[in-house]
């Protein structure tokens, strides 16, 4: 598929998602913010004060969306002996900032992610839970793993595929730009140094240069 076709397909998909969001009473009941969010929010503009960054828009996800995302965030990035989990670093708050932003990429992500959450809730409903986050840990892990496997096998729907891709991207982006995340992957710069002498001998040896 060419890039242009793909963009068109994405756009079509988002329009479809918006249509679903707009017409489903149950959807609006679960996610009242979806009905009126975004429209009046303002971006930070083209002349910003870089030394005093301000997020100029309100966060718009509701308590249930945040709870479910927090669970999913920890499935994507769990704690281990080297670094904390996504929720321990409050990355879901960043996801809320992201999907509430009044820019086209983020507005698309908002539609993708709120719709995906709704689909997870539907699966939770079948197990007699109101929301995904009401399920027990095993149930949550099983449902999410099934989604991930279907995305990996390319058997997932376009909506599910996009939901997984974007969630992972935003959680990874939010998490690995924190101090803890950068330390985990081994970023070691952004400090002033006198001279730049290239990689130390240890690294040169490891990469097979001299």
């Amino acid at each position: 598929m060419s890039k242009k076709q793909k963009m068109t397909a994405n756009r079509r998909r988002v329009l479809k998602l918006m249509a679903i969001a707009g017409t489903s009473a149950a959807y609006l009941q679960n996610y009242p913010n979806m009905a009126n969010a975004q429209v009046s929010q303002k971006g930070y503009g083209q002349d910003v004060d870089v030394n005093n960054p301000v997020v100029t828009w309100d966060k718009t996800l509701d308590a249930n969306q945040l709870k479910s995302l927090s669970v999913i965030g920890d499935l994507i990035i769990p704690a281990d002996d080297k670094s904390p989990s996504a929720s321990q670093l409050n990355i879901t708050d960043f996801v809320d900032e992201w999907v509430s932003a009044p820019y086209p990429t983020q507005e698309k992500d908002r539609a993708t992610i709120t719709y995906g959450l709704e689909r997870l809730n539907t699966q939770a409903n079948a197990l007699d839970a109101r929301y995904f986050h009401d399920l027990n840990g095993d149930q949550q892990a099983a449902i999410f793993d099934k989604l991930a496997v279907s995305v990996e096998n390319e058997t997932a729907s376009e909506e599910e595929d996009l939901f997984m891709d974007r969630l992972v991207y935003i959680y990874v982006g939010g998490y690995y730009t924190t101090d803890e995340g950068m330390e985990d992957i081994g970023y070691a710069g952004n400090v002033p140094i006198e001279t730049f002498d290239g990689p130390p001998a240890e690294i040169r040896k490891l990469i097979g240069i001299e």
Partner: peptide, 17 residues
């Protein structure tokens, strides 16, 4: 696609850079 959890964290550590 579909990478998450412990495998994702291991992957990030190994492939970063």
């Amino acid at each position: 696609k579909g990478l998450y959890g412990k495998k994702l964290k291991d992957y990030m550590r190994r492939f970063y850079g």
